[in-house]
Amino acid sequence: MQVLTPLFHVFVFPGFLFLIAFGLFASWVDRKLVAKMQNRVGPPLIQPFADLIKLLAKEDIIPESANRAMFAVAPLVAFAGVVASAIYVPMWSAQAANSFQGDLIVVIYLLTLPAFALFLGGWYSTNPFATIGATRVLSQLFGYEVPFFLACLGPALAGGSWSISEITAAQADGGWFIAAAPLSFIVAMIALIGKLERVPFDIPQAKTEIVSGPEVEYTGKRLALWKLSFLAETIVASALIAALFLGGPHFWGIPFGDMPAWLAGLVGLIVLAVKILLIVFFLSLTRAALARIRIDQMVEWCLLWLGIPALVNLGIIIFTMS
């Protein structure tokens, strides 16, 4: 059993299978919501699954001028990074599958891996669109990564720990850190849009400008892997924000202590899933309501309007704690 449990965590829950299934479901929710907001019908529930299967069946092409190893490995690294980070994020109770002091830093870095992998994959595919998209990935990274990190520092300071599980446990009395760090929460949500490369920050992909940026040369199962990486990242990053700011699986009036362990885990998972879907709803709303901005506008705006509020909120937390 002791060997099987970590394998279960990596491959079934909260890792590989769960991330794919819930990621595809969340993408259906997102597509359906945006469709409703845009006065369209939207896809059926099965659509994201069908898209995935279709992509897996397609021919896999590697461009002749591309660096084969880098091109092939990049999507695997991205997906592996996201799945690995899922193990340290609480998904069903305040305690994650695994935790240690400093896992917050590890998760933030693992969640940055898809962006770096996307840059490398795009750069080594040597397509002009991919090259421009790849440089945009990196430029954009500087825009959102610093504010995102600063925003995650807020709950870490308020909870007095570098472990996500401990930060979540510190909110078990109902004192969600969104109250202590409201600005940090808003900053984290907006930086999340940049991280997931969605409208208005879908600049690296920008389909009407550079087709689909770094992914342009990818086909078949490698493209499917890219899509899955970003779907899984949506889930993990949303779960991270929920764990840091929204009390993780906690909700008032649900007596987790009185339930048997399996029921507490199930209810906790459902509560967290609802919170993740609420974050997805926010992402859909911005996608429907806004236009894509330019990379220079994005970096400037993010550093000014995300960086400074995150710092201000950190200052307030430190001042009130001492």
């Binding site: 208005p200 389909k207 236009a291 894509r292």
Partner: peptide
């Protein structure tokens, strides 16, 4: 124009 700048909702509304 809405489509070109990634403003899909404008595209959908105007065409409706």
């Amino acid at each position: 124009a809405g489509h070109e700048i990634g403003f899909e909702s404008l595209f959908m509304y105007v065409w409706r």
